[in-house]
């Protein structure tokens, strides 16, 4: 029996938690999220190199919340999601029991936000080098080339909203896409509707995105939409000194200002 199963069983048995969010084997060798409520179910839990999904998004799902006090198996992205959600008053300190899977397979437990913050401070939270390269490649293009690039990508979008469902920060009860008075985002998945949706989502995630990549992973059409939000991470850090998901009491970069915020385009 793995350490993980032992630990989760103990937590469930002594009622520290009522349910645990972890990974199990799905069909066709795929890994999927699972919600463990008792010792029997705990036997399904697995932990290996393929367990990369950010599970934090489930913490706010109504059906999951109903299960009671939650424990979660977290990776770095999930820890950051938890911090970000805490700063948005969606999770309270001590409400979630967090088990972090170290690279060597050992587990670290976090029972409060302070310890998560301390841990994140010394952890690499940046985006992957492939993604960095991709952004650099796009940035090197002309505006028009970039337009064509995204036009082509967005053309593929079928507006299934899998990206939104996968994003831990897209927890709105009613996404703006569903608002119809006025209908800000055209319903149909044509070029305009798709562009509108993706620009809007990127703005909504600006300063909040914790670069977990779930949106792009979820996309059935392989649209690299994570780049839209990733690209904003470094300017937001450089200009405002803010990085999402590092502190539970952080102030959102766009909810504050400095009188001398620098820009070079306002005349």
């Amino acid at each position: 029996m793995s350490d993980l199963i032992k630990k989760v069983t103990a937590l469930l048995n002594d009622k520290t938690i009522n349910a645990f969010i972890g990974y199990e084997k799905g069909s066709a060798d795929r890994i999927r999220a699972t919600f463990i409520r008792n010792e029997d179910q705990a036997q399904k839990l697995i932990l290996n190199a393929s367990c990369t999904q950010n599970l934090a998004g489930y913490l706010l799902k109504h059906e999951v919340k109903k299960l009671g006090k939650l424990g979660i198996l977290a990776n770095v992205a999930a820890l950051r999601s938890i911090m970000q959600l805490a700063s948005e008053f969606q999770i309270k300190d001590g409400e979630v029991y967090v088990l972090f899977a170290n690279a060597d397979g050992s587990l670290t437990e976090f029972t409060d936000f302070k310890s998560i913050e301390a841990f994140l401070e010394t952890t690499d939270t940046g985006i992957k080098s492939e993604e960095q390269e991709m952004i650099a490649k796009l940035e090197a293009m002309t505006v028009n080339e970039r337009w064509l690039f995204w036009n082509k990508e967005f053309e593929k979008c079928i507006k299934c909203y899998a990206c939104r469902a996968a994003c831990p920060m897209c927890y709105c009860h009613r996404c703006t896409t569903d608002v119809n008075q006025p209908q800000w985002i055209p319903v149909a998945s044509h070029e305009l509707g798709n562009l509108d949706y993706h620009l809007m989502r990127a703005m909504h995630l600006a300063g909040r995105c914790v670069n977990c990549g779930e949106c792009a992973t979820a996309c059935p059409m392989d649209i690299p939409l994570n780049l839209l939000t990733y690209q904003l991470i470094s300017p937001i850090k450089a200009t405002f000194g803010a990085t999402a998901g590092m502190k539970a009491d952080a102030v959102y970069a766009l909810s504050t200002y400095k009188p001398d915020d620098k820009e070079n385009f306002i005349i």
Partner: peptide
Amino acid sequence: RNLLNFSGI
């Protein structure tokens, strides 16, 4: 502006 620029607008 950053986003627009990156999106080709």
